[in-house]
Structure formats: C-alpha cells, structure tokens
Amino acid sequence: MNITAIEVFPLKIRNEPVYLGDSRGLDPARDYYIRPEYRSIYSRNLETLLVKIEADDGSHGWGEALAPVGPEVTGEIVERLLSPFLIGEDPRDIDVIWNKLYDSMRERGYFSGFMVDAITAVDIALWDLLGKSVGLPVYRLLGGAHRKRIPAYVSGIPRQTKEERVQLALEWKARGFEAIKLHLGYGVREDASIAAEMREALGDDFRLMIDAHWKYSVPDAIRLGRRLEALGVEFLEAPTLPEDIDGHVEICRALDMAVAIGEAKRTRYQFKERLVKRAADLLQPDVGRAGIGETRKIANMAEAFNIKVAPHLSVGLGVCTAATLHLSAAIPNFHILEYQPSVLPVANKLLKDPIACEGGFYELPEGPGLGVELDEEKLRSWMKR
C-alpha cells in the first residue's frame, strides 16, 4: 500500500455567536481580532484545516489540525513541505512517518507551532486510513477501550450578566451535565465572585473548573487558587504564562487543588520537564495539535508520574473530535473531556453521521477508522463560499 494523493481543505465557517461569546475587541470589518481579556488572536469564524490522504488501494483517511486562525498557513506546510515526502510512502508506517516529518525541520527549530500542527493533520489521517483498511476503529488499534462513554464538561458560559450566566448553567445541569468550566481571567476578585455565584446556584456536588487563560502572575494565581479551593473548584487551568515552568511548580506546591496545563504544548519533549518538575497535576494536550500517536505517548509518560489527562478540545470540528474520543477511550489515565456547545453542531453538519454528546457523555464512534465520514460534497461547497 502506498500514498498517492494528499489534499488540504483550509476551512472558515461564519458562526454566531463568536467562539466563547462576544468580546470588546471584535471589529465587524475584520475576521481577526485580539481579545483584550486573553491577549490572543481570535477569529469571528470557526476555522480549521482538514486533510485527505488517499492510497493506491482506493482507501482514504481524514485528518484535522486545530487551526483557530490562519488554517491556510498550516495547509501550505502540508502541501509544499510534507506532501512531496509522503507520496509513495506506506501509510501504515505511522510512527516512522511522524518521526521523518518531525526530523525534517528539527535542526531549524521548527519543532512546535504550525509545523507540528501540519504533521498532526497527517498523523490523524493516517490513523483513520489504517483503521479503514483493516476494518477496525482506531481505539482498537490503540489497544482497546477503557470506556465507551466519554464523560464531558461544558466549556464556557458565554453570558454577560450574573443572571444570564446562572440561567444558562442551570439549563446545562437540567440536561444532565454535571461539570462546567468557566473561562475567566478578569481579575482575582471578579473571578472568585463569578465562581462563587456559580457554586451557590449549582450546589456543592456540581463539578466546577476554571480556565484563567494565562492571565496571572504567580502570586495572584496562588491568591485566586486559594479562594477557588474554598469553593471546591476541581482544577485551575492555565494560571500563569505557559513558558514559566518554575512558576507553575510554585503554584502547584502552594495549592491543594489541581493545576492543569498543556493546550499550548505539542510533543512529549515539551511535557517532559513539566512532569519531572511536577509543574502540573493534570495534563491537557490537544489531539488537534499533537496528533493521536504523540498524544498517546504524552499520556503514557504522564501515567508513569500518576498524572491524569483531560484532553483540550476547542474549535476542532468532527475529525478532530472523533480522534480525541478514540484517544480518550484508549488511555487508562483519562480524566474528563471538553465539550464545546457552539462548535459540535457545526462539526456535525459536515458529518454523514453526527457525533453525540448528551447527558454529560460523548458516545464513542464505532465504525472503522475514526468512525466518522465527512460529507465531501458539502465540504467542497463550503470551500467555495
């Protein structure tokens, strides 16, 4: 079996409301804007990169790279740099191919960012193709499923007022969800106040998590964490700058609650020092940034440190979501998975059979490969918009 073709689909889908709700930085005249509260570039669209790889026996696989901004950049890397070295390769040699592509720009310092995102799209497509070629779901290829219903938390309560936030949170609770993550980072006092109002409304048994979006200094992160501990918050995500490993160590030692990190990291090499130094209590690699094979290696490494994995899942569409579900099923140290209420319905419009997340659980796709198939005709029509 040999690879015969690689096709890229940089996709931009207009979706309202914008991801995580409105922002003061949103400019109606431009697609991209900087959210002042998070300091990051966001898009008014849902953006992603899909990749299709075909083999000479007629089989194919779909991959996806998390590309919330500039998916055409990642697509260019796949087309111009990676594809010439993929044509003619055996698609079943997934680990060999990953290492070959990773090594190809390693000495130049391109061992993260857009380069690894591009490798990730290829990696996921190869796992999908392999599963389809042997008639098995990816989780079987990874060694089997520890679980077939994947517990999920609602990510974000994008409302402006206290009353609106509480009302939406109660609606999710009524629909059977038992966990919510709040996207905060507005200041220690305001973050603690919002968390307190949610705790009061949802009750002591409801699981609350906080994402601080790298907002705080180490002392302020500790101050916030201690206030959140009193509210029974399960974990504090991204409390300080992602490069500050020693700062995270200090935060972890000061708090009893779990500190979660990892969405910005892409390889086991980036997680290694953080594990050795105990700079996190919970890892959050994103399969759309690391790929299936590399995320499994990260999870295996974390298992040796008795640390669980709660995969990050933001604006990835159906292929990325399905890949994350298979990985989540196959690792023993899985904790919980993110659910994006504004993203999954859009993702499902491109799938022939939708992915279900109801009552606080995803259902694991059971078909060959990733268990999902894209509506290619619809995808191509969306590309022309």
Score class of each variant (00 low, 15 high):
81 L>Y: 15
81 L>W: 14
82 L>N: 07
82 L>Q: 14
82 L>P: 02
82 L>K: 05
83 S>Q: 15
83 S>E: 14
84 P>T: 02
85 F>I: 08
86 L>P: 01
86 L>W: 04
87 I>M: 11
88 G>F: 01
89 E>M: 10
90 D>R: 05
90 D>G: 00
91 P>V: 00
91 P>N: 03
91 P>M: 01
91 P>S: 02
92 R>K: 11
92 R>F: 10
94 I>Y: 07
95 D>E: 15
95 D>T: 09
95 D>W: 10
96 V>D: 03
96 V>M: 08
96 V>Q: 06
97 I>D: 05
98 W>V: 01
101 L>G: 03
101 L>E: 06
101 L>Y: 05
101 L>K: 07
102 Y>N: 01
103 D>H: 12
104 S>T: 02
105 M>C: 06
106 R>C: 03
107 E>F: 14
107 E>I: 12
107 E>W: 13
107 E>G: 01
108 R>T: 10
109 G>M: 01
109 G>S: 00
109 G>A: 00
109 G>L: 00
109 G>Q: 02
110 Y>R: 13
110 Y>G: 01
111 F>P: 00
112 S>G: 12
112 S>H: 14
113 G>W: 05
113 G>N: 05
115 M>L: 11
115 M>I: 09
115 M>Q: 12
115 M>R: 10
116 V>N: 08
116 V>W: 09
116 V>P: 04
117 D>Q: 12
118 A>Q: 11
118 A>G: 13
119 I>L: 15
121 A>S: 15
121 A>P: 04
121 A>D: 10
122 V>Y: 09
123 D>T: 01
124 I>E: 09
126 L>K: 10
127 W>I: 04
127 W>M: 07
128 D>H: 12
128 D>Y: 11
129 L>I: 07
130 L>K: 15
131 G>H: 04
131 G>W: 04
132 K>R: 15
133 S>Q: 14
133 S>R: 15
133 S>P: 03
134 V>L: 14
134 V>T: 15
134 V>G: 11
135 G>I: 08
136 L>G: 02
136 L>P: 01
137 P>K: 13
138 V>G: 06
139 Y>P: 03
139 Y>C: 07
139 Y>F: 15
139 Y>V: 04
140 R>N: 09
140 R>M: 08
141 L>W: 11
142 L>R: 08
142 L>S: 06
143 G>S: 08
143 G>W: 09
144 G>K: 14
144 G>D: 11
146 H>K: 05
146 H>S: 03
146 H>Q: 04
146 H>L: 00
146 H>V: 01
147 R>T: 06
148 K>F: 09
148 K>H: 12
150 I>T: 08
152 A>H: 04
152 A>C: 05
153 Y>I: 06
153 Y>L: 10
153 Y>A: 08
156 G>N: 09
156 G>H: 08
157 I>A: 02
157 I>V: 13
159 R>H: 03
159 R>M: 09
159 R>L: 03
161 T>L: 04
161 T>W: 05
162 K>D: 13
163 E>I: 02
163 E>R: 14
164 E>V: 00
164 E>K: 02
165 R>C: 04
165 R>S: 06
165 R>Y: 00
166 V>H: 12
167 Q>G: 09
